[in-house]
Each structure stands twice: as C-alpha cells, then as structure tokens.
C-alpha cells in the first residue's frame, strides 16, 4: 500500500472542507456588520446586536430543530404553522382562564405530538417528508383559524412579565427572556448533535441511510425523533412568539418555514443531509437578522429588499455547497 493512498490530500494551511461553508457565513456576517457600522453611527451600539437576537429569538429556536431534520436529509414545512398554532392555542387557553403553567405544558406537547405523527408516517410508509410535512402545515394552519378567526390578545400577568422583563447591564443594554431561552436551545441542540448517539445517528443517516441501517443504527427511531425535536422547537418558538407579540393571530408566521430553511442552508447545512452545524445555523439566522436591520437603518429601501437579498444569498450558498461537493468527488 503506497503512502499516497493512506494520506488524504491535506496541507496544513488549508481549512478542512467541512468548515468552509460555516466560515463563509461568518465572513459574510462580519462584512455586513462592518458595512453597517461604517454607514450608520448608531449601528455600532451593542444594543443593535441584542435587538437582532430579541427580534429573531423564536426563529433561531425553530431553526435549531430544522437543522436536525435537514441533517437527516429530510425537510419540515410544518414549522411556521406549528409556531402559529402554538401561539393561538396558548392565547385561547389563557383567555379561557387556564393557569399559565398548564398552558405551557399543553403548548409544549402539541407540537412534538404532531411531529411524532408526521415522523411515523414518513418512516413507516416511506413517504417523502416534503409531502407529509406539507400536509402537517395545512393541518396546523387550519387549526389556527379553527381556534379563532381573529387575533386573540394575551393579558395574563406571567406572559406580560415574560414579554417585558429586561435582563441587561447598567448602561441600559438588555436582552429579553426569549433570547436566553433561545441560547439554551442552541446549546442543548449543539450538544445533542455533537456528543450524543442520537446526534451522531442523525449525521450517519444523512450521510448514507442504507449504510446506517447495515451498521445496525436505529434509523427509524432517529428519523421519527428529528421530527419530534423539530415539533418541540416549533412549540418553544410559538411560545416565544406569543411572548414577543402578546397575542395569537391565525395568520402570523406565514411562510416562516421558508425563512427557517434559508437560515439553515445559509448557515452551511447541506440540504441533502449529513453535514452541518448548529453554530452555522446561529450564523444563518444572524445573517437574516442583520439584513433586516440594515434595511431598516437605511429607511429608504422597501422591506421586500430583505427577500431579494436573501434570495441572492441562498443561491450563492447552494452553489458554494455544490462546488465543494464536486471538488470532493
């Protein structure tokens, strides 16, 4: 056996290819932030960064769940509707006078249950995740209007305290409770993916499902688990959204699933599965948040520019992934 077949082509100055997408996102984020700071004086205020987290905390939580699903090579289109359904249900129960603790428990159970059912259908009937979660999306959205056709305000004291609580430094910079919850979800998500068997099985299935099966890994359980996780993250996201808006509205978070998928992909997770990091997803969400902030700061630009820029970036990142894939071959 020659040495050339034993040593992978690797030079010390070259970054391992698996980190390239994440590093590209990080660079992009720093450049955008730099542009913001150089253009607008107020941009350098640290509160701007905190606000990005405050405004996108729920998105981040849902994106962590989506990262699990996409890593297995699946997709979950139901997340936006599940977020809305959770918020609606919480608002409706609170309006009915149910104790907030009980509301939280119920709200955190419904999302994972729907995820479990979708996961079972995907695994046992071997149906494309796209179509199963599309059905889940319609179902959950329908449930929103079933609960109420109009928006329900939330006046519960626990909810309002959650919405208004500011955790900050003496200079007046602050974050909300939602941001702390989001950070916790990110840390747990990253830990599970990197340090538990479930997490590694998720990677293995995304890499090669057939091999994972032959290596004796619990493929079915893992596939169902990722949809449960995604459902749980959507439920947490829904509660955070209801903290943020203090209401449940039947048409809130429409199309959010697409923002989430965009954030995960821009964060470097490969859509075909097997490669990606929760840290990349955090960066992806931040990129979306900073774009929105930049456009708000400009003031003259229409908010649709956000979509146009995201569209362009998404293209660029899919191409980048493809190019890395081709080089690997």
């Amino acid at each position: 056996m020659t040495t050339s077949s034993l040593t992978p082509t690797r030079d010390w100055w070259r970054i391992p290819q698996r980190y390239v997408p994440v590093l590209a996102t990080l660079t992009l984020l720093l450049v955008m932030y730099g542009v913001g700071v150089s253009q607008y004086r107020a941009f350098s205020n640290i509160q701007v960064v905190f606000n990005v987290f405050i405004d996108n905390g729920f998105l981040l939580v849902v994106a962590v769940g989506m990262t699990f699903v996409i890593l297995t090579g699946g997709i979950d289109l139901s997340v936006g509707s599940v977020v809305a359904m959770t918020a609606m249900m919480s608002a409706s129960l609170l309006q009915g006078g149910v104790h907030p603790a009980a509301v939280l428990v119920v709200a955190l159970l419904v999302g994972p249950t729907l995820g479990f059912l979708m996961g079972c259908v995907i695994h046992f009937f071997d149906i494309q995740p796209f179509i199963v979660t599309l059905a889940g999306m319609f179902f959950a959205r329908g449930m929103c209007t079933f609960i109420s056709k109009s928006s329900i305000p939330i006046t519960d004291p626990f909810w309002t305290s959650m919405a208004q609580e500011r955790i900050g430094d003496p200079k007046g910079n602050f974050v909300s409770i939602s941001v702390l919850v989001a950070f916790a979800v990110v840390l747990v998500g990253a830990f599970v993916l990197a340090y538990t068997r479930l997490g590694r099985n998720v990677h293995a299935i995304g890499g090669n499902q057939q091999s994972a099966l032959l290596m004796g890994l619990p493929v079915g359980q893992t596939k169902i688990a990722v949809y449960v996780i995604s459902g749980l993250c959507s439920a947490i996201g829904g509660i955070l959204l209801s903290f943020y808006t203090l209401s449940g509205a039947p048409l809130i978070a429409v199309g959010m699933e697409l923002d989430v998928i965009a954030a995960v992909v821009i964060g470097g997770t490969v859509l075909t599965g097997g490669s990606g990091y929760v840290f990349g997803t955090v960066l992806g969400v931040l990129v979306l948040g900073v774009i929105k902030t930049l456009i708000t700061f400009d003031g003259s630009l229409n908010s649709w520019w956000t979509k146009i820029v995201i569209g362009g970036l998404l293209f660029a990142f899919i191409l980048l992934q493809r190019l890395i894939g081709i080089r690997k071959k």
Partner: peptide
C-alpha cells in the same frame, strides 16, 4: 457500507461510542 461524511473513528464506533452520562 459506512458513512463517508463521518470521521474514521466514528465509523468504527458509531452505535457503540464510549460515553459518560450519555
């Protein structure tokens, strides 16, 4: 029948990784 996207060590031990508290 292994997973090319995982490290060599993982491919040997996946499913039987040494663990402490999970």
């Amino acid at each position: 029948n292994l997973c090319a996207n995982l490290s060599v060590a993982e491919n040997i031990f996946i499913g039987r990784e040494p663990r402490t508290l999970g």
